[in-house]
Amino acid sequence: MDVFVRSGDNAISGAAVGASAVVERARLIASDGLNFELRHILVSRNNMALSLDNTAVRDELKLDEHLLAVSFLRDGKTSAIETYLSDLSGMNAFFPAPSSLPRYCAASCSNAAAAPMFFSMEGGN
């Protein structure tokens, strides 16, 4: 089962369970014109990480944040991805939450300097 859990209080926060929900979440993120720039690929003995810059502009809103995505590998495949965001309040403003969206970590993480996003792929998918 694929699970994508995102911190914050916004339209892309909360849990997306199953491959189709994860793909739909990615489409939602891309639909607002978010640009990703790969800055660095970092490796350890067992895992790897991607350092990215995320930018986007919509009307008066501007998003400019740093992101680190750590991929945990098992048997040569990604088993989980944990992502750290530098500007959670900027993400909350850029992707405003619909009132019906379930929240994950909204109260405790909304003011955090770096908040995690977690994606797990059980079964080695």
Rank of each mutant, 00 (worst) to 15 (best):
S79V: 13
V43A: 15
N10E: 01
L28P: 02
I81Y: 03
P98K: 03
G124W: 08
A15I: 01
R103S: 12
E65W: 10
A21M: 07
V70S: 12
A56H: 07
Y104K: 00
V3E: 00
V57W: 13
A115G: 14
S31V: 02
R103L: 10
A16K: 09
N10W: 05
S108C: 10
I81F: 07
F94I: 08
R45A: 15
S20M: 07
N125V: 00
L68V: 14
S13L: 00
R74Q: 04
N54L: 05
S7L: 11
G76E: 08
G8T: 10
V17N: 00
G8H: 01
Y104Q: 04
V57H: 12
E65K: 08
S31T: 10
D75W: 15
I81D: 13
G8E: 05
L67S: 02
L52R: 13
D64C: 06
A15N: 07
A113D: 13
L42G: 15
A26G: 02
G124C: 13
K77V: 08
A21G: 05
A26C: 09
L88C: 12
R45M: 15
D32N: 12
M1F: 09
T78S: 11
D9Y: 09
A21Y: 04
P96G: 06
S20D: 03
R45Q: 15
A11Y: 02
T83P: 08
A113I: 04
S79T: 10
G8I: 01
A15F: 03
A56S: 14
R25N: 07
L101S: 12
V23Q: 14
L38N: 02
S99R: 07
A26S: 15
A69K: 03
S86K: 06
P98I: 02
V3N: 13
H40A: 12
I29G: 13
L61M: 02
A115E: 04
M117E: 13
A97G: 09
I41W: 03
G123P: 05
S100C: 12
L28G: 01
N46L: 11
N10C: 09
S89H: 00
D2E: 14
T83Q: 06
E24K: 00
D9R: 09
A114N: 09
T55R: 08
T78Y: 06
A56K: 08
M91R: 04
S20R: 05
I81A: 06
A16P: 01
D75S: 15
P98T: 00
L67K: 14
G90C: 02
T83M: 03
L85K: 07
V70F: 02
P96Q: 01
R27L: 14
R103K: 05
S110D: 06
L101E: 04
P116S: 03
D75G: 15
